[in-house]
């Protein structure tokens, strides 16, 4: 990975952090636990899905593991609209 791309990746992640979070669609969830199992920092994503709460945990890396691994398409990123495209409040 070139240095430029490395920064781009980090930039995207930071943007995701301030601009969005993981939201569950509770009706699709069967509580299998694949999301929590794969969370690198052990957030109980499954519990959020049961309660219908977005993962607004300040430790969330928005790495996307849970979104990608969920076999039932329960989770997605939702963008918060507090910031415009340039990141200005």
């Amino acid at each position: 990975m070139s240095l430029k791309n490395l920064f781009r990746h980090e930039n995207t992640r930071r943007q995701a952090l301030v601009k969005g979070y993981v939201v569950p669609e509770t009706a699709r969830c069967v509580q299998c636990g694949i999301c929590s199992y794969h969370c690198p920092i052990e957030i109980d994503v499954r519990l959020h899905a049961w309660l219908g709460q977005s993962v607004k945990d300040r430790h969330c890396l928005t790495c996307g593991e849970c979104v990608a691994r969920c076999p039932r398409g329960v989770l997605s990123f939702e963008v918060t609209r507090f910031f415009d495209e340039r990141g200005n409040a």
Binding site: V30, G33, I34, Y37, P71
Partner: peptide, 14 residues
């Protein structure tokens, strides 16, 4: 999770 048993069987979950 009863539906989760399928993923236990495929070794995707402990």
């Amino acid at each position: 999770s009863r539906p989760g048993l399928a993923y236990y069987l495929t070794k995707e979950l402990p």
